[in-house]
Simulated assay, not measured.
Amino acid sequence: MQYVVICFLCWKPDGQGATMDLAMAMGVAMFALFGASTAVFLHQLKG
């Protein structure tokens, strides 16, 4: 999270780059949550 804040301070005033960084971080987080929940679900089916 610190990386996003630091990049937000480094970008141009229009904030377009920071918005894209935040969108990318949110996308990666959502993918990780989906993957983790799928793994837990499959593990519960197995056991």
Score class of each variant (00 low, 15 high):
residue 34 F to Q: 03
residue 25 A to K: 05
residue 11 W to A: 08
residue 13 P to L: 10
residue 36 A to F: 05
residue 16 Q to G: 10
residue 31 F to V: 14
residue 30 M to G: 07
residue 37 S to E: 05
residue 26 M to T: 14
residue 20 M to E: 14
residue 11 W to P: 08
residue 28 V to C: 11
residue 4 V to A: 09
residue 34 F to V: 14
residue 34 F to A: 13
residue 24 M to L: 07
residue 14 D to Q: 06
residue 6 I to E: 11
residue 26 M to D: 12
residue 3 Y to G: 01
residue 46 K to T: 08
residue 9 L to C: 08
residue 36 A to Q: 09
residue 10 C to I: 02
residue 28 V to K: 14
residue 4 V to N: 00
residue 28 V to W: 00
residue 11 W to K: 04
residue 31 F to M: 11
residue 28 V to Q: 15
residue 39 A to R: 03
residue 33 L to Q: 10
residue 27 G to A: 09
residue 42 L to W: 10
residue 41 F to P: 02
residue 33 L to K: 14
residue 7 C to K: 08
residue 18 A to W: 00
residue 5 V to A: 05
residue 3 Y to C: 04
residue 5 V to L: 06
residue 18 A to R: 01
residue 32 A to V: 11
residue 30 M to A: 12
residue 12 K to I: 02
residue 13 P to Q: 06
residue 37 S to D: 00
residue 31 F to T: 12
residue 47 G to N: 13
residue 26 M to V: 14
residue 38 T to G: 02
residue 6 I to V: 09
residue 29 A to H: 03
residue 14 D to Y: 00
residue 5 V to S: 05
residue 11 W to N: 12
residue 27 G to E: 13
residue 40 V to A: 12
residue 16 Q to S: 15
residue 47 G to R: 05
residue 34 F to P: 01
residue 2 Q to V: 09
residue 9 L to E: 14
residue 29 A to W: 03
residue 24 M to W: 03
residue 20 M to S: 12
residue 1 M to W: 01
residue 6 I to W: 03
residue 12 K to Q: 12
residue 5 V to G: 01
residue 22 L to V: 04
residue 40 V to G: 01
residue 25 A to Q: 07
residue 23 A to N: 06
residue 27 G to R: 00
residue 13 P to C: 01
residue 7 C to F: 08
residue 5 V to D: 07
residue 47 G to H: 10
residue 6 I to F: 04
residue 20 M to T: 13
residue 17 G to A: 05
residue 46 K to G: 07
residue 14 D to A: 11
residue 10 C to H: 02
residue 12 K to F: 00
residue 31 F to G: 04
residue 2 Q to M: 11
residue 2 Q to L: 14
residue 19 T to V: 13
residue 35 G to T: 01
residue 41 F to W: 09
residue 45 L to R: 13
residue 42 L to P: 00
residue 18 A to L: 03
residue 36 A to M: 13
residue 41 F to Q: 07
residue 16 Q to F: 06
residue 20 M to C: 09
residue 39 A to E: 10
residue 7 C to V: 11
residue 16 Q to M: 03
residue 18 A to F: 07
residue 2 Q to A: 14
residue 9 L to V: 10
residue 43 H to I: 15
residue 2 Q to C: 02
residue 45 L to N: 01
residue 35 G to I: 04
residue 46 K to R: 15
residue 40 V to T: 08
residue 42 L to D: 15
residue 22 L to W: 01
